[in-house]
Write a protein that binds this DNA or RNA. Structure first.
Lengths: 166, 166
DNA sequence: TTGTATGCAAATAATTTGCACCAAA
DNA sequence: TTTGGTGCAAATTATTTGCATACAA
């Protein structure tokens, strides 16, 4: 599970829990213990995560509030449908992040420490829309990830190199 | 295998075949029939492709020039290392495209017909570098995919809707 | 009651690995 | 001759699915 540099949250009138209840009601789906518990868990910390990382921090089989792996996968998809989460692929697995109550943004990805850093750029969105318009494209969304090495890792490496010279 | 709208190629002094030979030599690796054949196949058409699509257009087991699936996977990775191909993930699988002799670009992805369209934007690269600099990031590369519906698919759908009204 | 949700076990799909044999250099 | 390469079969990994049972509305 990767760390995050957070942006300021956005104003929302409903809690994620309420918002998801709305969603379920609107589709005639059921508000189960598992779903309630997972909303709670997923929104308890603002971090990027994948299914496996989430499952690790959940109660084990046999414990109270245990949720099976298939249900976790099924529920994460529902969260995306409900607009609670966004998802994207990184290094082969699906990564999730808060969407509800959180501003649009893109990512810098440090390939050394695997951390994701967020940034916002209105200019990028403008550029995206111009490109799309020029191609007659109707935009749904975009995904930009800048791969590189973060400041901390660059520093660490420089220090390491100096040591190597001694 | 998805179609492509192509950009103009870039001047290169060596053929992909020669360039790969260089690469192999520089690493003390061997130039085998399989590798030569795969370079030839991969550069015979300018298209985005995945391992499975490539294998489908290759000779079957028993035929001349048969290359096993593991070797295809191994060789595609080498092509990326050698700078012949670039790769990125799309809908769960790894997609490859020509890099050698081809300009930097990004993609529009039509979620209706699954086609990839290419576009170039110096402004985007500038923006990327500014963002990275502001965060003390050393950039390796970036990946931007604009998801949406292409012009052709929008037209098709509009037509379909009209028909539905009749 | 009635249809949805869950957990379990098994299935998928894409990709990778171990290993014995083959072949470039 | 020596070390890297290949094909085969099997393993992995992440995710999904079929199905019997459990439960929300």
């Amino acid at each position: 599970m990767s760390d995050v540099i957070s942006l300021a949250p956005v104003e929302v009138s409903l809690s994620p829990q309420e918002r998801f209840e709305e969603f379920l009601r609107s589709r005639g789906l059921r508000n189960t213990d598992q779903r309630r518990f997972l909303v709670e868990q997923v929104f308890s910390r603002h971090e990027h995560f994948d299914a496996d990382g989430l499952i690790e921090q959940l109660p084990r089989k046999g414990s109270k509030n245990y949720v099976s792996r298939p249900t976790v996968y099924r529920t994460l998809k529902e969260f995306v449908d409900a607009g609670l989460l966004k998802s994207f692929q990184l290094d082969g697995r699906m990564v999730y992040e808060h969407d509800y109550g959180y501003p649009q943004h893109d990512h810098l990805y440090c390939t050394r420490c695997q951390k994701l850093f967020e940034f916002q750029s209105d200019e990028l969105v403008k550029l995206r829309d111009e490109v799309a318009a020029a191609h007659g494209f109707r935009v749904n969304h975009h995904r930009l990830i800048i791969h590189g090495v973060c400041q901390a890792c660059s520093r660490r490496r420089r220090k390491k190199r100096k040591q190597d010279l001694v």
